[in-house]
Simulated assay, not measured.
Amino acid sequence: MTGPLFVGCAGWSLPREHWPAFADEGSHLQRYASRFNAVEINSSFYRPHLPKTYERWAQSVPSAFRFSVKVPRHITHELRLQRCETALDEFFAQCLHLGEKLGCLLVQLPPSLGYEAEVAGAFFEALRKRFAGDVALEPRHASWAAAGALLQAYQIGWVTADPVVIDAVYAWQGVRYWRLHGSPRIYHSAYGPERVALQAQALRQSTAAGVPTWCIFDNTASGHAVADALCLLEKKP
């Protein structure tokens, strides 16, 4: 059975030059969702959102649309995964109002946060007590290459990032998540048709294995994410 493929951008801002490719009417999110079936909510990393805001977003998109929600930096960067049960409760009290349209959680760690098995295990234990859905981890310290067994145990997927920070580890394969930040100039560089075609090939292999697969373009700073994501749709991965 082919796994679902979720394609979108980090945020639903639409550069004016791409407006003709989307629905003419509706909110920014509604117009965005007329072409893409997924989006990564990055604003949750910086500030909380009211439950009714998540509910409104969920009601604005088609039934098959899914949101990936970035775990707050208060948990990942300030508390550094420790003693964060209360913060997790507060976060889930908000984002779970997406209902079935909450497709994945993104846990991005600071580059300075190394892998400590006891700390990581306690964090994922606390997270799994509150959330049984897909979770993708984007660590940025090389020591996390040793975390494969723990990620298997807690069924945590690995973010395949570009530019590559850590070579892929043998993590849980129940979800695949590509996060394309832009290279060589991070957040700015466009990928273009040739590199997007290579990405489409990798996505086909993932979905052919029956794995839920995400591809999020995060090269938003110069407005290239939407163009690259539209190009990917044309490649029919």
Rank of each mutant, 00 (worst) to 15 (best):
M1S: 12
M1N: 08
L5K: 02
F6Y: 14
F6K: 02
G8T: 10
G8E: 12
C9A: 12
C9M: 05
A10C: 15
P15L: 01
A21R: 11
E25S: 13
L29S: 07
L29I: 03
R31Q: 15
R31T: 09
S34G: 12
R35H: 02
A38G: 13
V39R: 10
S44T: 09
Y46A: 11
Y46N: 11
L50S: 12
L50V: 00
K52F: 00
Y54L: 03
Y54M: 09
W57S: 14
Q59P: 02
S60Y: 02
P62G: 12
A64C: 09
A64P: 11
F65Y: 06
S68T: 12
V69G: 10
P72Q: 08
H74I: 03
H74F: 02
T76R: 07
H77P: 08
R80M: 05
L81G: 11
Q82H: 06
C84Y: 03
T86A: 15
L88C: 07
D89N: 13
F91Q: 11
F92G: 09
Q94T: 11
Q94V: 00
H97N: 15
L98R: 03
L98A: 09
E100R: 08
C104V: 03
C104Q: 14
L109Y: 04
P111N: 12
L113S: 05
A117G: 08
A117R: 13
E118F: 00
A120F: 01
A122Y: 00
F123N: 12
F123H: 07
F124E: 07
A126C: 07
R130A: 06
F131Y: 13
A132F: 00
A132W: 01
A132H: 06
A132Q: 13
D134E: 15
V135K: 08
V135Q: 11
A136S: 14
H141I: 01
S143T: 10
W144T: 06
A146Q: 12
Q152V: 00
A153Q: 13
Q155R: 15
I156C: 04
V159G: 07
A161T: 13
D162P: 06
R179T: 10
R179D: 15
G182H: 05
R185P: 12
R185V: 11
S189L: 05
A190G: 14
R195S: 13
A197M: 05
Q199C: 11
A200N: 14
Q201A: 14
R204H: 09
S206A: 12
S206C: 08
G210T: 04
V211R: 03
T220M: 05
S222L: 04
G223T: 10
G223K: 01
H224Y: 15
H224W: 08
A227G: 11
A227H: 04
L230E: 10
L230A: 06
L232N: 11
K235Y: 02
K236L: 09
